[in-house]
Amino acid sequence: MNTTARIVLLVIALVVLAPAAGMLILAMPAFGHPLSQYGDVVNALAPRLRNISNMVAAVNFDIRGIDTLGEECMLLAAVTGTVMLLRGHRGEDMSERAGRVPGRKQPSRSDATVLLCRFIATVLFLFGIYMVLHGTVTPGGGFQGGVIVASSFVLLYLGESYRAWRRIVLGPALAALEGTGALAYVLAAALPLLGGYAALQNVLPLGTWKDLFSGGLMVAVNYAVGCAVIGSFGVLLLEFMEETRAPENDPVPDEEDE
């Protein structure tokens, strides 16, 4: 089919769906006036039952913790798949030089850039760690902080040479961190079972409200998520950057055809 035919199909679908969607939109609860009591009950109960001030973290890591374990594993699956795909023919070996697109200018790094990058990378790294640590108290947490820490690695690439980046950021270590984080989450879910509690039951002391270590098991789960996300995104960025390395004896198979 060509583009015109596809657009005709879309228009037909639109003609049928537009009245249905209109009916649906008009029947929706009015914006800003939710019907659900679920959130209100969480807001009312969680600070009392768990001594925690960030309700989103309470939902993520405790009340609906098994959801988050599932999402965590999605991350694992997506990253494992990406690594597998990118490494497939490239192999495990690493290159020392960055590649370049012919015809595009490559300005050399000035000292100021290097300094700035080192500075920002450090700040970003620390900020990410801070965010992971304070996940149960203020906005942020393992997911956001982990991504920030991982992206601070990229600044190393920007500021230092490609070789330095390769030497500092170690693939297998990051992969191990990723796996360990996920494993820790699974253990946090499984260990309470041995004591006769429900899976993921918050059996640790809850701490005091607004304290760094408030929320009991949530703190541990949050750190586990942080480790896993740092590992996952670190591996991800590493493998993507590796795609732009200098071609040596690139074994890309030009398959049977063309």
Binding site: G99, V101, M131, V147, F233, E243
Partner: peptide, 29 residues
Amino acid sequence: APDVALSEITIGTVVTPLLFFVALAAAAM
């Protein structure tokens, strides 16, 4: 939703565009 906004800012304005750029550069190479 400050939590969600933080994760959108790190993912949506930093990581995803970076991945796109790298992918385009790799394709160009």
